[in-house]
Design a protein around this nucleic acid. Structure first.
Lengths: 341, 341
DNA sequence: GAAATTTGAACAACCGATTTTACAATTATG
DNA sequence: CATAATTGTAAAATCGGTTGTTCAAATTTC
């Protein structure tokens, strides 16, 4: 690999001048500059990234921490992040936390040591966790910018971005209530997962608003995986007084419920209505098509990357931004058989 | 951030000794070492990644180039790569090439400048492309290790890893032929995509082996996206002499075909049998369940990462490895209605 | 035309580690 | 006991850039 010194030597000048010439900084005579450029090209010179970063304290790398790339809502979000990041000259490191706080902290540590310019933390338990809050503070002191996504917590000392989980859940539940269901099972996520909690609150609020008693027995806790939707859904459906509708905290589990219902020979939505959350691609491919809450995943990713990089490229820290996107309920056949109408 | 010099000062020694103490290299007296460790801990010292990498010429970062993370075969492969990489102490940069050779080259360049230790290139056109072959050579000279995945080309100057696309396609096609189908439509990928070409060859060979004439009119070229499977499938099915079976070069397109068939009211598999390739998660969730060719995606990713990192950690270059995994045909309801039996 | 300003480029310091070298202090060997 | 081998540590070089300083030369200003 050719170094800046070899270029300088061939161009009969010094490294400083070569650096200035190639970076268009300071005074360099036209002629000198052209010569340096010619030599650099001939020797196929490219600056050494590490050496440069060491000096400039910029790596042009951002890191992304999400629970699990294999969960179908993430690839699209990631793609949004990547496209925006690449457009702005950044590369993207991606890691999975499996939503474990310890793992999140470990990754935050690794990334800050690697001197990435910024980190997007897609939540698990997220900043609800004390240790994570501390970590966030440290990162901020180390000059590493952070954007947290997936839920909102007041006074979070970073930029954040999320859809309104409460509102989305509230509205689907209301949709189910309006259809006449008054016994609605809810399949939540892990108990410490903020998003699941928010969605559960939305579910609860909608019931209350309809003067229906919230009942613990109608709430089951899954893990956002299909298998748990299947198991818990089957359990609901086999009860003596089975709920007439089941709302799962994400689409993947809702699809598990659909499979369970199918296996038990229950007609959807006649015998049991099913709704999910996220609007993953497969929600509209599975039969019956799944009623769900839609969030613009690609755009969320793109926006998150933009926020992060904007934050990186400013020196005087603005106050933290907190963006809450409006979710949209998409009604499909799993709750409302439109053929019938 | 504390530097090694501050630690040295507090421990009343010099940076060299601190370095040796913390890295267990060379002679350091037990007492000195303990003292240094204590001070380092107290000052919360962590070595500066860039400075260290600059000197050691190792970044502990590998890069992954794939066509598109949003394509459902990749998240699982990626997860396999990440898990293995993290286990071995590496972080993973991920970028999408959209299977464009120019983009692949651009990314290879960026990553080599970023001084990643190794790159996994998931193929589009891949090393078939002249410029990419040249690029690979340059990388190799620059000491960046490479593993290419997704197809096999003889005498490729790198390690490579792939399933036997030909064989997989051959076997599904044979399965269809054995069911009595003698007019089988094939939906291929983009013309320059190696994997699609290989699968097409397998399809062709199976026909030949069954003494059935290969007919250009029965081959359509899609882009691996669902939409193209839908469109081309619909086109096939609406022909006067529609094929009785359709084999798509990947599951996503096959699912498009299923949707097309459903829309046209054709019964699967009675009126049209449908098969895909990849065995993505959704292949067994969609109804009818999709017959397809399975490849162990997570394990492929894990193995690829292992190969790459093994290659990184050896100095004397072994001869290149070429691993070809056996695919497995999974027969489901989209070709064979098992209830009927 | 002298003084002030601008331009150009060499030199050296710096980023923060690792590694080599040199040398002093111990310990082992014959 | 003298010499050789081993241990321990400070000092300096190195990785490959960027940036600040310095000073000479060219240009502008009064």
């Amino acid at each position: 690999m050719t170094t800046i010194y070899e270029v300088a030597k061939k161009a009969r000048t010094t490294s400083g001048t070569v650096s200035r010439a190639l970076n268009n900084k300071g005074y360099v005579a036209e002629e000198t500059k052209r010569k340096i450029e010619r030599v650099a090209k001939r020797l196929n010179y490219t600056p050494h990234f590490l050496a440069r970063s060491l000096r400039t304290k910029k790596t042009d790398i951002i890191a992304v921490i999400i629970p699990n790339i294999a969960n179908p809502i993430y690839p699209e979000i990631i793609r949004g992040i990547q496209d925006k990041a690449h457009e702005l000259g950044y590369q993207v490191l991606i890691s999975n936390s499996d939503a474990l706080p310890e793992r999140e902290i470990e990754l935050l540590t690794i990334f800050s040591q690697k001197r990435v310019d910024g980190i997007f933390l897609g939540t698990g338990e997220g900043a609800e966790n004390k240790k994570i809050r501390e970590k966030i503070k440290k990162l901020s002191e180390a000059g590493i910018k952070l954007v947290v996504g997936g839920f909102i917590k007041d006074k979070l000392p970073t930029d954040s971005l999320s859809i309104d989980n409460f509102q989305g859940a509230y509205e689907v539940t209301k949709h189910l209530l309006n259809l006449g269901h008054n016994k609605i099972g809810f399949i939540s996520g892990p108990k410490n997962a903020r998003v699941a909690q928010e969605r559960q609150k939305g579910y609860r609020a909608a019931l209350l608003n309809h003067n229906i008693l919230y009942h613990d027995g109608l709430v089951a806790y899954g893990n956002f995986q299909q298998e748990s939707g299947y198991t818990l859904g089957k359990d609901f459906l086999q009860r003596e007084k089975a709920p007439s509708a089941i709302f799962a905290a994400n689409d993947v589990m809702a699809i598990g419920v659909i499979l369970a219902a199918e296996e038990l020979g229950r007609r959807i939505p006649e015998e049991v209505a099913i709704a999910g959350f996220d609007d993953i691609t497969w929600a509209s491919i599975i039969r019956p098509r799944l009623t769900t809450v839609s969030q613009p995943k690609y755009e969320v990713g793109s926006l998150a990357a933009e926020m992060l990089i904007q934050r990186i490229n400013e020196e005087n820290n603005r106050t933290f931004q907190r963006i809450i996107l409006k979710p949209k309920v998409v009604i499909r056949e799993s709750t409302l058989n439109q053929e019938k109408k």
